[in-house]
């Protein structure tokens, strides 16, 4: 089962999490076979929000909502269940300063291809 671990940090706080710690964990989780993809993000000041309303593209500066913690990076992981996902997320170094939101991946492609299959079999 796939989970996305969204890493949030307060950008205005003095940074305690060293890049070297993050890189070490990244190497470890990739070596364990649990990591499908992972990246760190540029600060939220570099973000652009895009919306389309009535066919019109609107582009604005910054994130959708102002919150205390900002999205700082992510890990897409493969875990057997939520307990394993929580254990993996708890070892992401920024979890000690900010927070990590663990979200199950909705298997949208699999579901779409299954309903296609049922049409074929029906």
């Amino acid at each position: 089962m796939k989970y996305l671990c969204l890493v949030y940090l307060d950008e205005s706080a003095p940074q305690h999490v060293a890049d070297s710690d993050c890189l070490a964990y990244d190497a470890a989780i990739r070596a364990s076979g649990h990591c499908i993809a992972s990246e760190a993000l540029q600060p939220v000041r570099t973000a652009t929000t895009v919306r389309v309303r009535n066919g019109q593209v609107s582009v604005t500066d910054g994130p959708f909502a102002e919150t205390k913690e900002q999205l700082a990076g992510f890990y897409l992981i493969d875990a057997k269940d939520l307990d394993e996902a929580i254990a993996l997320a708890a070892r992401i170094p920024p979890a000690q300063e900010g927070s990590v939101e663990v979200r199950p991946i909705r298997p949208i492609r699999e579901i779409a291809s299954q309903s296609g299959a049922s049409v074929a079999h029906g």
């Binding site: 057997k80 269940d81 939520l82 307990d83 199950p104 909705r106």
Partner: peptide, 10 residues
């Protein structure tokens, strides 16, 4: 079901 919370003793 969706987040797959397991049935297990920790």
């Amino acid at each position: 079901r969706d987040a797959r919370i397991p049935y297990q003793v920790p």
